[in-house]
């Protein structure tokens, strides 16, 4: 009997070892799909910049967060005050649903990219869908240099990987742009080339081990690996255009938001769009959205150059065709086995 009591005591101790603490400062919760490493750095900076506020990031993949918000919408209250996630098409959707708070930022004039004229959303970081390979295993000249070749080159069969448009916002945009450019045939070609659909970290590992020759991936994840792990992985900016995804920053209306601190969110929006805030975005291997970027990410090329050579994306199409794209992607790519 004593033994059992002792066992229970151990269990209880384990449980008691976890007592949280709460702060009294006004709180802002931000849903974001930025990397945890970047979030950590960013949290630290924000603590110094806004010591009176308790700002918390909450990481989730775009799909996860969208699902979460959909579920939360049912409850008439979201779990967050701000969103730094997905692409403009999602911002359009949320705006239509009346969830967003409008604010005209003083920084708006410096933006190089499209933003909502009424101030419902602003682009805050520029994400680039590119191709990546491992020069330690394969020669660059043997590999496709464009998205088109990536899918159409039969030599790549079984050796390519891409993110899942169902879960990753950027991938959603990418397939929308690629479909607009090449039609649904592009999906069929991907399927014929037996593309593996999986998330970034997995794909990069496959590049490193040589399991994949080439992957479609976000530039930032390759740059991060290069800087942090001295990785040899290299970016190819596709000849048919990098797919640029300006990810928006949005504030949730007070009646919907978790803490009702829209005023604070306005301050945060200004800071994120300021050269200083953008500096941290760039440190996080993403490109700035300013006309005069404070810097370019580690090992990357000029932001303007990428934007100029980007594949056109129609956000309206993205929003309108979303379920059609989804279904087609599923049926044409995922259903081929």
């Amino acid at each position: 009997m004593k033994k059992l009591v002792m066992v229970l005591a151990v269990a209880l101790l384990l449980a008691c070892a976890c007592v949280g603490y709460a702060a009294d400062k006004p709180k802002v919760t931000i849903y974001t799909s930025m990397y945890e490493d970047i979030i950590e750095a960013m949290t630290f900076v924000l603590q110094e910049k806004f010591p009176d506020y308790d700002i918390e990031f909450f990481y989730g993949g775009t799909g996860t967060l969208q699902a979460k918000i959909a579920a939360e919408r049912d409850t008439k209250k979201l779990g967050c005050d701000m969103l730094m996630v997905a692409d403009p098409s999602y911002a359009l959707e949320l705006k239509e649903l009346g969830l967003l708070h409008a604010y005209l930022s003083k920084e708006a004039g410096n933006l190089s990219l499209e933003y909502d004229p009424e101030g419902y959303w602003y682009p805050v970081r520029n994400l680039n869908m590119i191709l990546a390979y491992n020069p330690e295993k394969f020669k660059k000249e043997d590999l496709p240099q464009s998205f088109k070749d990536f899918a159409y080159n039969e030599a790549m069969k079984g050796l390519i990987s891409m993110p899942n448009p169902l879960t990753a916002g950027t991938a959603q945009v990418a397939v929308s742009a690629l479909k607009d450019k090449y039609g649904y045939e592009y999906f069929d070609k991907l399927a014929a080339n037996r593309v593996m659909v999986e998330s970034g970290s997995v794909a990069l590992t496959k590049l490193e081990t040589g399991e994949c020759k080439m992957v479609m991936i976000l530039e930032e994840s390759v740059l991060k690996k290069r800087e942090e792990e001295n990785s040899a992985l290299e970016v190819i900016y596709p000849a048919d255009g990098t797919i640029c995804v300006p990810s928006p920053i949005m504030t949730v209306k007070d009646e919907w938001s978790a803490h009702g601190n829209a005023k604070i969110c306005e301050e945060l929006t200004d800071w994120f769009l300021s050269p200083e805030g953008q500096g941290y975005i760039v440190k996080g291997w993403m490109h700035s959205v300013l006309k005069n970027p404070p810097a370019i990410p580690y090992d990357s090329i000029n932001t303007a150059e990428i934007v100029t050579n980007s594949m056109p994306v129609s956000w309206e199409n993205c929003l309108r065709d979303r379920s059609e794209l989804r279904t087609n992607f599923e049926e044409r790519v995922k259903n081929k086995i």
Partner: peptide, 12 residues
Amino acid sequence: IDYVYVGSAEGL
């Protein structure tokens, strides 16, 4: 989970 990730009420 794919359906959930559609992120809309219909997906749910």
